[in-house]
């Protein structure tokens, strides 16, 4: 991190990516879909919402910020909407009463020029703290799309990796130092983990950034510790939702990279109290070294209300600060 000019505190706090859209933006998106407002009017609302979340993150005291993805509907669909080679399908269910427009690969995929860079710049202008560049990884884009074009999953995934690398290069050129490449689909087919590794290699190899990947809601037992071969610096993992059961795996095989440790459940309306979150973090620190731990929610917060999301972020920051004070006063054990 220091090589990149970043000076973060012990137990840096961050969030996984998405935040809920304020009601005014939700209305604007509906109006835009119905043709009632222009694209420029929608973008103005998206910028207003992004600025709101940048200020909220500053006020709450997070250390590494995100743009909150106010301009995205879904993490895969957003990129599919921008990249030639995709069509956007009708709705399919994600869970419960949640649905998304699943993309369809119908042609050769192509990077059309910077997709997220303007938003990253907009967000970074709002703060002196580092803002993560946020991308969805090639394996997840492939897995969460229908494929009517490529002969197999591997060729679709590697074609996407070559194009997504160009977006990473564009973010780095714009000044981003921390780039998160989400691969929540990583654990779906354990036998394809080598493909996830190969694709991430294509995306990140030789590039000067601190890379994070977010993986969630999967069968980690089937891919750990082999998943540590994915060439990133930090794994952002949901821990609260599975009652910290992954710590048992880390006891068996040392977690040898940095981790963004999810300490609040994003699919519950209940905001955890500080003692609960501190306890989760203390349990983490019984297994992990404080120097390798970042602290965040389990996953993106977009399904919560604006108030719930802020409260969940606040308790993350409060708990991390308490533990940070405690651990700063101790001599760090050798890593």
């Amino acid at each position: 991190m220091q090589k990149l000019g970043l000076d973060l505190p012990l137990l840096p706090t961050t969030s996984v990516g998405s935040f809920p859209k304020p009601p005014s933006l939700a209305r604007a998106r509906t109006d835009y879909a119905k043709g009632k407002i222009t694209a420029a009017a929608l973008q103005a609302e998206e910028e207003k919402a992004t600025a709101f979340w940048m200020e909220a993150q500053e006020q709450i005291g997070l250390d590494v910020l995100v743009d909150g993805e106010q301009y995205r509907g879904d993490m895969v669909v957003y990129f599919a909407e921008h990249m030639p080679g995709f069509e956007i399908g009708d709705l399919v269910r994600s869970y419960g009463n949640r649905y998304y427009h699943k993309p369809i690969l119908t042609g050769e995929v192509r990077w059309p020029g910077p997709i997220t860079v303007a938003w990253w710049k907009f967000a970074q202008r709002c703060t002196a703290k580092p803002v993560k560049g946020m991308l969805t990884g090639p394996y997840t884009v492939m897995d969460w799309s229908f494929n009517e074009h490529y002969p197999d999953r591997k060729s679709a995934c590697l074609a996407l990796a070559r194009e997504i690398r160009k977006e990473v290069e564009a973010l780095l050129e714009a000044g981003a130092k921390i780039i998160q490449i989400d691969e929540p689909a990583t654990s779906v087919r354990p036998e394809e983990l080598p493909l996830v590794v190969e694709a991430m290699q294509v995306v990140t190899e030789g590039l000067p950034g601190y890379f994070i990947t977010h993986i969630c809601y999967g069968a980690f037992r089937r891919i750990y510790p082999a998943m540590l071969e994915i060439p990133v610096d930090n794994f952002d993992l949901e821990m609260a939702n599975n009652q910290l059961s992954l710590l048992d795996l880390f006891r068996e095989h040392r977690f040898r990279k940095d981790i963004s440790f999810g300490v609040v459940d994003v699919h519950s309306h209940v905001v955890e109290d500080r003692a609960t979150v501190e306890q989760r973090l203390e349990q983490a620190l019984q297994v992990l070294q404080p120097e390798q731990v970042w602290v965040d929610p389990d996953c993106g917060l977009k399904t919560r209300s604006v108030e719930e999301a802020q409260e969940k972020l606040r308790v993350v920051v409060e708990a991390a600060r308490r533990l940070r004070e405690q651990y700063a006063n101790r001599s760090a054990p050798a890593r």
Partner: peptide, 14 residues
């Protein structure tokens, strides 16, 4: 309880 992916889909069950 919480959500978990259903096999190799991107559909989640409780």
């Amino acid at each position: 309880n919480g959500l978990l992916r259903f096999f190799d889909t991107n559909f989640y069950f409780r």
